[in-house]
């Protein structure tokens, strides 16, 4: 009898019912569960993020998001895209470019906001650059879902579909991700 059993003489009726062998089998079955999970991910064809992040491509019904000239550099505007719950943000960067992103942080789904030429998630202080939506600081590791915009001849602006995720683009274009350029000279990154 071990010293601690003598020191703490508790007698449990079931104490001997879970053997080392049973514990090992339980661990092995948990291991099999992980394998099943990876197999499920392999066989699953739909995107993992579900309906909130649909496949890239045009939508049947483009959404008008106002006049392009109304938005000054540094300003943003919220709009709904696919349905009443699909919050998106339209912004004009400091360089004058119009960009639109789904307003859902890729970390834990908080609403991002446009501040100081970056998209900021206030929940955990994650930041995204506005050029392609890549995360540049904080917990998020995936880029924001981008919305395709179309400016029509009358100056109106329309959200017309989903843009493909930047990570799916050819490797030559991925160098634009600020995290890929972390080891380079900061002056080169700005250029």
């Amino acid at each position: 009898m071990t010293w601690w059993r003598r020191a703490f003489p508790l007698e449990l009726a079931e104490e001997g019912h879970f053997s080392r062998r049973e514990f090992a089998r339980f661990l092995a079955l948990v291991s099999a569960g992980f394998t099943t999970g990876i197999g499920f991910l392999w066989l699953r064809k739909a995107p993992l993020e579900g309906a909130s992040d649909p496949e890239p491509g045009p939508v049947e019904h483009p959404v008008a998001v106002g006049m392009a000239a109304d938005l000054k550099p540094g300003e943003s505007r919220l709009f709904k895209f696919r349905d009443a719950h699909d919050a998106c943000i339209l912004l004009r960067t400091g360089k004058g470019e119009l960009k639109a992103y789904r307003q859902i942080c890729t970390h834990l789904g908080c609403a991002v906001r446009f501040k100081a030429d970056r998209l900021e998630c206030p929940c955990h202080l994650g930041f995204f650059e506005t050029d392609r939506g890549f995360p540049v600081q904080g917990p998020p590791s995936r880029p924001l879902a981008a919305i395709a915009l179309e400016e029509r001849s009358d100056g109106s602006l329309w959200a017309v579909g989903e843009l493909p995720k930047p990570t799916l683009e050819p490797p030559g274009q991925r160098a634009a991700c600020p995290r890929d350029q972390a080891g380079q000279d900061p002056a080169e990154v700005k250029a």
Binding site: R21, A24, R25, L27, A28, S31, A32, F34, T35
Partner: peptide
């Protein structure tokens, strides 16, 4: 890995 774990466990 699961195969090894199951073999060891059983």
């Amino acid at each position: 890995l699961t195969g090894i774990a199951l073999f060891l466990a059983f």
